[in-house]
Design a binder for these strands. Structure first.
Length: 873
RNA sequence: GGGCUAUUAACUCAGUUGGUUUAGAGUGUCACCUUGACAGGGUGGAAGUCACUGGUUCGAAUCCAGUAUAGCCCA
C-alpha cells in the first residue's frame, strides 16, 4: 500500500472527529481524577466563526487536549450567548427586509420571530468549531436563555435587589437612538471627528443692545438651555452675575450661574447649560438646581420643545438652525473644531446622553474582592501587564446600568401595581409577585393587576454567571458538578471584554460562591490584517475560517494562528502562516512516509544509529521539560515553535538522516522499532496543536490499543546534558565540513578525509555518526601539520580536510583572515574586562572565571589560526 | 486631558532575578545542490548603533529619568 505523497486533511479530519465523538472522549463526569475545566466564552448564538474565534478556541483546545493527556478530567463547556442587542438588531433588520416593523408587532410576536431566527441560525458557530477540532463536551452545550440558566439570572436579580445592591434611578445614560435603548459606558466608542464650533449671541434681558456670545458644537440643543454659566473669576463677565438671558429663537429667559468648571480659555468663556443633554451640564444643573428640558424624542428627532423643528432629526436641525441663526443675526461665526463623539458599538449611531429611569447595580462592594484577588495573584492574568488596566478600572468603578429597552433577553422581574416610583415588587415569577404585592399592599392583588417591566437585562448580566450557571451552581447550590468543576482552571478571552465580562465574572464568583471563578485568565490579542487593521466583517478583510480549513487543513490553520501570537499581543494574520502550518503537516507526514517505506531486516544495528537514538531520546527529554515549562507559563506560541524545531530540525534533519539506510537498503529491526517509539512520543507532544494529522499517523505507524487523543502525555525523566553537548560538537564538525564542500564546490557524494591534531575526545561517541553525515573516508588523528588543507576548529581541536585537486588557497586564506579578525576583536573585548581591576574585584568569581576561560580559548584559537595561515601557501 | 503598555533583522517575535558569544529564532531574501520522504527539500550566506538622550553600575537590550513614536484603556 502506498502512502500519499502529501497529507490529505479532509479524510482524516472527518474520520477522527466522528470517532472521538463516538467514543465520548470529550465527555466529562465528575470522578476521582483532578478536574481541568474551561468554560468557553460563549459566542453570539447567531454568530459565525471569525478569525478571533479561531485564535481563542484553538488556544482553549490546546490547553484542554494537553490536560486530557496528562490524565486530568478535562471538561470544556461550550455554549452560546443570546447577545440581546446584537441579536435583536439582526432580527429587526431581517424583519424590515420583509416589510415588517418592530413597532407594529407585539412583544410576543417579535419574540417568536426572534426564536425562529435563533433556531435557524443558532449554533452554526458551534458546528464550525467542530471543524476546527474543538474537543468540547457537546452534551453540556448551554444557551444563556435556556430555562435553567434564565432561572439563575432571575435569582441573582432578586437577590441583589433584596440586598439593596440593585436600585432604580434617574440617571444620565447613553442613549442609542437607532436601537432605542440605553447602552452601557463600555458599549460606547469615542471617536475623534471634525465638527464645527458655532458662536451664537444671546441677548441680556432688560438691555437695549447688550449681548453675550456662547460657543457650542450643538446649536440644536439651545431649546434645552436652562442657564448660562461663566467662571466666577472671569472678570469679563462679572457684570452678568445675577442677570437673565434670552434664549435665541424662543421666548424663554434663563439665569446666569457661576461655576469653576467653566474653562476661561475655551470658546468665549461663556457656556450654555443643557442639563438634559450633556453629562457635565447635568452635574452643573444638579448643583445649581436648574430645570431639565429634554428636547429630543427617543429616536433622535426633536420634540415639542424644538418648536418648528419638531419631528426633525437632530442632525438636520443642526443644519437648519445654523441657517436660521445666521439669518436672524444670532450667529457670529463658525470655526472648525475637533471633538470626540460617542458612537454605539452595535449600531454606530451617535449616542445621546439622556436622562431616564433605569435599573442599576451598585458596584462598589462587589468590586472589592474582585480587585483584591487579582492584585494578590490568586487569579493570574497572562500576560500580567493587564493587571494595571484592571486595577485602574476597578478602582474607579461606576454603577452598572443593567436595563435595556429591548425585548430579546431576560425580562426584568419587576412587577408594577401602580404609577408611583415605588409601586412595584421584584419577584422570580408572576405568582410570587402576586403574593408579594398582596403582602405589600395589605390586600389581594390579581395577576392582571400587575404589569411586568418592559425592559430586559443587559446581556452581561447573564453571562457574568456563566462559570457558575453552566454547572447549575445557583439553582442547585452545592451540587456535585459545581463542587467538582468550580473554580474552573483557565479562561481564554480577549482583553476588550475584560470589564464587560471577566471582571464581572470574578465579582459574581465571590458574591455567590465566595470563590474565584477561574485561576488563570489568558488574554489573546486582536487578529489584524497585513495593514494592521482589525479583522472585521464590516471591513471585509477577514478570511472565512472554514475556507482556510478547506485549503490548509484544520491542523495547518491551527498552527497558522498560533505560530505568532504570544499572549496579549495582537496577531498580524496572514494566510502564509497557514501555509507554513500546512507545510508542517506535510513534513510530519513525510517523516512517517519515510519510516514506513523501509524494508526491515534482522541485521546488525549500525553504531551511528545506536548513538542517534540515544541522543534523540535525551534531546526529546530536554525539549519535553522545556515544553512543560512553557505551558505552565502560558507561552503557547513558543511551545509550538519549540515543537516545530524538534520535529523539523532535530528529528527530520538530523535523526532521520543519520539512521536513514542507503538507497534501497533495508533497515535493522532495532532501529526501526526504536524510531517508531520516538515518533510516537513526538506525536503525543504535537497532538494538542495538530490533533488530526497526529491521530492519523499514530494509527498508521504502528498498532495501537488506544487513540492518541486519550494517550498519556510523556513523562519527564531527565536527560544527559553532557551527551547533548557532545552531539552539538559533532554537529558542528559536520556543518564545518559541509561548509568546506560548499566553498570548494565539492559535491556531497565525494568522500573526504578528516584529520585532527591534539586530543579529540569531546564527540568521540559520535565518530560513526560524523563519518556518515559528513561522508568521510578517513577520520583520524595526525601529528603532522597538514599544510594544504581546509581547516576548522571545534572545541579547541584543529581539524584538517586535505585539499583534493581543486585547491582554492586564496579563498581559504580569506576565510582564515576573517576568522582571525573576529577572534582578535573578541579577545580585545574580553581582555578589556579582565584588565579592569574593578571588574575583577567586584564581579562574582564565576563570572571572572568564565571571562578567563574565554580569554584562554580565544588565545588558543588565534594561535591555531595563525599557525594554519603560515602553513598555507 | 489622565492612565497603561510597547519600541530588538525586511516581517513576526524570544531574550527569564543586569554577567555562558561583538544579541537569537521562525518566515522572507540571496547563492549553490537535489531523478532519491517532503504541493517542495538540503546546505550555506547576508541582514540589527537593541527608538533616542542622559544616569546608576566593574558591567545595561535588561534598572532609573527624560524625549520621540505607536497602540490600548478611561474621561
Amino acid at each position: 500500500m502506498s502512502i500519499t505523497k502529501t497529507y490529505d486533511p479532509k479524510i482524516a479530519e472527518e474520520k477522527w472527529y466522528a470517532h472521538w465523538l463516538e467514543k465520548g472522549y470529550f465527555n466529562s463526569v465528575p470522578d476521582d481524577r483532578e478536574p481541568f475545566t474551561v468554560v468557553i466564552p460563549p459566542p453570539n448564538v447567531t454568530g459565525v466563526l471569525h478569525m478571533g474565534h479561531m485564535l481563542n478556541n484553538t488556544i482553549q483546545d490546546v490547553l484542554i487536549r494537553r490536560a486530557r493527556m496528562q490524565g486530568k478530567n478535562a471538561c470544556w463547556v461550550p455554549g452560546t450567548d443570546h447577545a440581546s442587542i446584537a441579536t435583536e438588531a439582526k432580527v429587526v433588520q431581517k424583519l424590515k427586509s420583509e416589510g415588517l416593523n418592530k413597532t407594529d408587532l407585539t412583544r410576543d410576536e417579535f419574540l417568536s420571530h426572534a426564536f425562529e431566527w435563533k433556531d435557524k441560525h443558532g449554533g452554526i458557530i458551534l458546528e464550525q468549531l467542530k471543524k476546527l477540532g474543538a474537543s468540547c463536551d457537546w452534551d453540556r452545550t448551554q444557551f444563556t436563555m435556556d430555562e435553567d440558566y434564565s432561572e439563575s439570572v432571575f435569582d441573582v436579580f432578586v437577590d441583589l435587589f433584596n440586598k439593596g445592591k440593585i436600585y432604580r434611578g434617574v440617571r444620565m445614560v447613553n442613549w442609542d437612538p437607532d436601537a432605542l435603548t440605553a447602552v452601557s459606558d463600555e458599549e460606547v466608542l469615542h471617536k475623534e471627528v471634525n465638527s464645527k464650533l458655532f458662536y451664537v449671541r444671546y441677548k441680556v434681558e432688560d438691555t437695549q443692545d447688550e449681548w453675550i456670545t456662547v460657543a457650542t458644537t450643538r446649536p440644536e440643543t439651545i431649546f434645552g438651555d436652562t442657564a448660562i454659566c461663566v467662571n466666577p473669576k472671569d472678570d469679563r463677565y462679572k457684570n452678568l452675575h445675577g442677570k437673565r438671558i434670552h434664549v435665541p429663537l424662543t421666548d424663554r429667559t434663563i439665569p446666569v450661574v457661576t461655576d469653576e468648571y467653566v474653562d476661561v480659555e475655551f470658546g468665549t468663556g461663556c457656556l450654555k447649560i443643557t442639563p438634559a443633554h450633556d453629562i457635565n451640564d447635568y452635574e452643573i444643573g444638579v448643583k445649581h438646581n436648574l430645570d431639565n428640558i429634554n428636547v429630543f424624542n427617543d429616536n433622535g428627532t426633536l420634540n415639542a420643545y424644538g418648536l418648528h423643528y419638531e419631528g426633525v432629526d437632530r442632525f438636520e436641525v443642526r443644519k437648519g438652525i445654523e441657517k436660521e441663526l445666521n439669518e436672524k443675526g444670532y450667529l457670529i461665526k463658525v470655526e472648525d473644531h475637533q471633538n470626540k463623539v460617542g458612537y454605539s458599538e452595535r449600531t454606530n449611531a451617535v449616542i445621546e446622553p439622556k436622562l431616564s429611569l433605569q435599573w442599576f447595580v451598585n458596584m462598589k462592594e462587589l468590586a472589592e474582592p474582585a480587585l483584591e484577588n487579582v492584585m494578590n495573584g490568586k487569579i493570574q492574568f497572562h500576560p500580567s501587564k493587564f493587571k494595571n488596566t484592571y486595577r485602574h478600572w476597578m478602582e474607579n468603578i461606576k454603577d452598572w446600568c443593567i436595563s435595556r429597552q429591548l425585548w430579546w433577553g431576560h425580562r426584568i422581574p419587576a412587577f408594577y401595581y401602580g404609577k408611583g416610583t415605588n409601586d412595584f415588587v421584584v419577584a422570580k415569577s408572576i405568582d410570587e409577585a402576586v403574593k408579594f404585592a398582596s403582602e405589600k399592599l395589605g390586600k389581594s392583588v390579581q395577576t392582571e393587576d400587575l404589569r411586568q417591566d418592559e425592559d430586559v437585562l443587559d446581556t452581561w448580566f447573564s453571562s457574568w454567571l456563566w462559570p457558575i450557571s453552566v454547572f447549575d451552581g445557583l439553582t442547585k447550590p452545592n451540587n456535585n458538578e459545581i463542587k467538582y468543576y468550580y473554580p474552573t482552571n483557565d479562561l481564554v478571552t480577549a482583553p476588550e471584554i475584560m470589564f464587560f465580562w471577566v471582571a464581572r465574572m470574578i465579582m459574581a464568583g465571590y458574591e455567590y460562591l465566595d470563590e474565584l471563578p477561574f485561576k488563570n485568565v489568558y488574554f489573546t490579542g486582536i487578529v489584524r490584517d497585513k495593514l494592521g487593521r482589525k479583522m472585521s466583517k464590516s471591513l471585509g478583510n477577514s478570511p472565512d475560517p472554514i475556507d482556510l480549513i478547506h485549503k490548509f487543513g484544520a491542523d495547518g490553520v491551527r498552527v497558522g494562528v498560533l505560530i505568532s501570537s504570544p499572549a496579549g499581543n495582537d496577531l498580524p494574520f496572514d494566510t502564509s502562516q497557514c501555509e507554513q502550518g500546512r507545510n508542517f503537516s506535510n513534513k510530519i507526514w513525510n517523516a512517517f512516509r519515510l519510516i514506513s517505506s523501509w524494508e526491515v531486516k534482522d541485521i546488525e544495528q549500525p553504531s551511528s544509529s545506536a548513538i542517534a537514538i540515544e541522543w534523540f531520546t535525551n534531546k526529546f527529554q530536554k525539549t519535553l521539560a522545556e515544553l512543560n515549562e512553557l505551558y505552565d507559563n502560558y507561552k503557547i506560541s513558543e511551545a509550538l515553535m519549540v515543537s516545530y524545531k524538534l520535529v523539523w530540525d532535530d528529528f527530520c534533519s538530523w535523526y532521520l538522516e543519520i539512521i536513514k539506510p542507503g538507497y534501497q537498503h533495508p533497515i535493522d529491526r532495532k532501529t526501526l522499532e526504536q524510531s517508531i517509539t520516538i515518533f510516537n512520543d513526538i506525536l503525543k507532544v504535537l497532538h494538542p496543536f495538530m490533533p488530526f494529522v497526529t491521530e492519523e499517523i499514530w494509527h498508521q505507524l504502528s498498532d495501537q490499543n488506544e487513540d492518541l487523543v486519550v494517550s498519556c502525555w510523556p513523562q519527564v525523566s531527565g536527560f544527559d546534558a553532557h551527551l547533548l553537548t557532545s552531539f552539538s560538537g559533532a554537529a558542528d564538525i559536520v556543518s564545518s565540513i559541509r561548509n568546506i564542500r560548499k566553498q570548494q564546490n565539492i559535491g556531497g557524494k565525494v568522500k573526504l578525509e578528516l584529520y585532527y591534531s591534539g586530543k579529540y575526545s569531546g564527540s568521540r561517541e559520535f565518530t560513526s555518526m560524523i563519518r556518515k553525515m559528513a561522508n568521510l573516508s578517513v577520520f583520524e588523528a595526525t601529528v603532522e601539520k597538514i599544510g594544504n588543507s581546509n581547516g576548522f576548529i571545534v572545541d579547541g581541536i584543529q581539524f584538517y580536510v586535505p585539499f583534493g585537486d581543486a585547491v582554492d588557497v586564496k579563498a581559504e586564506r580569506t576565510k582564515l583572515e576573517q576568522e582571525l579578525d573576529y577572534s582578535k576583536g573578541f579577545l580585545v573585548s574580553v581582555q578589556k574586562k579582565l584588565g579592569n581591576e574593578r571588574f575583577v574585584n567586584s564581579a562574582p568569581a564565576t563570572v571572572v572565571e568564565n571571562e578567563k576561560k574565554k580569554q584562554a580559548d580565544t588565545l588558543l584559537k588565534i594561535s591555531l589560526i595563525e599557525e594554519k595561515l603560515s602553513n598555507l601557501n
